[in-house]
C-alpha cells in the first residue's frame, strides 16, 4: 500500500461558510482525530488530496507544523455528482494497532455462466477487514472464472490475505450467476389499467357518497 507524507495546516475557522471559502482558494478542509487526543481541524492542498483519492491511499503521514502523525484516511466526502472532494477524515493510528477498514473486492476472470447467458450479480463490492496498518491490502482478489449458472460465492468461501481478518458476515453473497429472466409479455401489460385509490378513510367515504347517485343514474 502506498504511503506518502502530506503537509497540512491547522485550520482556525470552522463551519460551512469558512469551508466553502477554503475550497474556493484551492484547499480542502479535513479533520484529524483518534488516540484519545483532541480532534484537530486542518486544511490540505487540493492537489495532495486528489493524489490521495486517485491512488486510493489508505495510510498517509500527515505533517502538521512540527508533528508528523501516521493517519488512516477514514472518510472522503464527495459532492452529489462525485466529482469534487469536500472533506476528509483522518484517524491517528499506531503501526502496531489493528485497524478496521473497507477493502474493495476484485473479481478475476469472466464467469463461465455469464458467457453462457447467465446474469452476474455482486451485491457486495467491499469487505470490512481488520489488519495492522502495514498489512492493508489494495484489494481482495476472488477468482470467478469457474462459476456456472446458479453458482454463488459467499464471503465465508474466500481466503483472506495473510494478516487480514474479514469482518463482513460470512453468509453475505459476494457474487452469484443468475439464470436469464424470461421476457415479459408487453401486450398483456397494456390492457391493465389500475385506478388510483384514495388513502384517507374520510375521503373514501366522501367519494363513495358522491359517486353513489351517478352510478344509480347510469344503471337506471
Amino acid at each position: 500500500m502506498n504511503e506518502q507524507t502530506i503537509k497540512a495546516e491547522r485550520r482556525e475557522e470552522t463551519g460551512s461558510s469558512a469551508a466553502r471559502r477554503l475550497r474556493r482558494n484551492g484547499k480542502i478542509p479535513a479533520v484529524v482525530y483518534g488516540h484519545k487526543e483532541d480532534a484537530v481541524p486542518i486544511q490540505l492542498d487540493a492537489e495532495d488530496v486528489n493524489q490521495i483519492f486517485a491512488h486510493r491511499m489508505m495510510m498517509v503521514s500527515l505533517k502538521t507544523g512540527r508533528t508528523t502523525d501516521q493517519v488512516l484516511v477514514k472518510e472522503v466526502q464527495l459532492d452529489p455528482f462525485g466529482e469534487e472532494i469536500l472533506h476528509l477524515d483522518f484517524e491517528r493510528v499506531a503501526m502496531d494497532e489493528v485497524v478496521e477498514i473497507e477493502c474493495p473486492v476484485e473479481f478475476v476472470g469472466t464467469p463461465k455462466g455469464a458467457a453462457a447467458g447467465g446474469v452476474t450479480e455482486h451485491p457486495v463490492t467491499d469487505l470490512t477487514v481488520q489488519c495492522l496498518p502495514g498489512d492493508i491490502p489494495e484489494n481482495i482478489s476472488v477468482r470467478v472464472s469457474e462459476l456456472e449458472i446458479g453458482d454463488t460465492i459467499i464471503v465465508g468461501d474466500i481466503e483472506a490475505p495473510e494478516g487480514v481478518e474479514i469482518i463482513t458476515e460470512p453468509e453475505a453473497v459476494l457474487i452469484t450467476i443468475r439464470p436469464p429472466e424470461e421476457l415479459e409479455e408487453e401486450e398483456e401489460e397494456l390492457l391493465v389499467e389500475e385506478p388510483e385509490l384514495i388513502g384517507r378513510e374520510e375521503d373514501e367515504e366522501e367519494v363513495e357518497e358522491g359517486e353513489a347517485p351517478e352510478r344509480s343514474e347510469e344503471t337506471g
Binding site: 401489460e189 397494456l190 391493465v192 389499467e193 389500475e194 388510483e196 385509490l197 384514495i198 375521503d203
Partner: peptide
C-alpha cells in the same frame, strides 16, 4: 404499464 402509486392521500 407505467408506474403509479397504489394509494394516495390527495
Amino acid at each position: 404499464m407505467p408506474l403509479m402509486p397504489k394509494r394516495i392521500q390527495h
